[in-house]
């Protein structure tokens, strides 16, 4: 059963992403409201994939990715960045920090499911 950590400050987006993830068989969704909350969840639960927003209060998504990549326990967890920033430079920045994929908002649920499946089924 893959555990998917959804890091998003917007309750609307959290619910929407969680809804989409329920369509992936046997997946369990763990929700976090920002980067700090995500790190807490990572220390207490086994996580197979992280879906994170960039713009969040307390700790943003890019900082979270760099901390995840710097931690030997979490460095191999795939991270997908979901954000309103659609510019190519934002995408490059996220990938350079260590994100595995980048999905701009508004998200297409089918596209998200397809992308998530490439990481959890492989």
């Amino acid at each position: 059963m893959p555990n998917i950590l959804v890091v998003e400050d917007s309750p609307t987006m959290r619910q929407l992403i969680s809804f989409a993830m329920k369509r992936i068989s046997n997946s369990k969704v763990i929700e976090a409201t920002d980067g700090v909350d995500a790190l807490k969840k990572l220390s207490s639960e086994k996580v197979d994939l992280i879906l994170a927003d960039i713009n969040m209060p307390v700790m943003d998504g890019l900082k979270l990715v760099s901390l995840v990549r710097g931690n030997p326990s979490y460095k191999n967890i795939p991270v997908i960045i979901i954000t309103t920033e659609g510019a190519e430079e934002d995408k490059k920045k996220a990938i350079a920090i260590g994100a595995n994929a980048y999905l701009p908002k508004p998200i297409q649920t089918q596209e998200l499911i397809k992308l998530v499946n490439t990481f959890i089924s492989g």
Partner: peptide, 28 residues
């Protein structure tokens, strides 16, 4: 999700925040 979130609170400012979230995240 949009409808659920809109009716999830009776706080005026929170409702406005949810409207903004829907327009940003779902409509783009």
């Amino acid at each position: 999700v949009a409808s659920y979130q809109l009716h999830s609170t009776l706080d005026f400012n929170e409702v406005l925040k949810i409207v903004l979230e829907i327009v940003i995240n779902l409509i783009g």
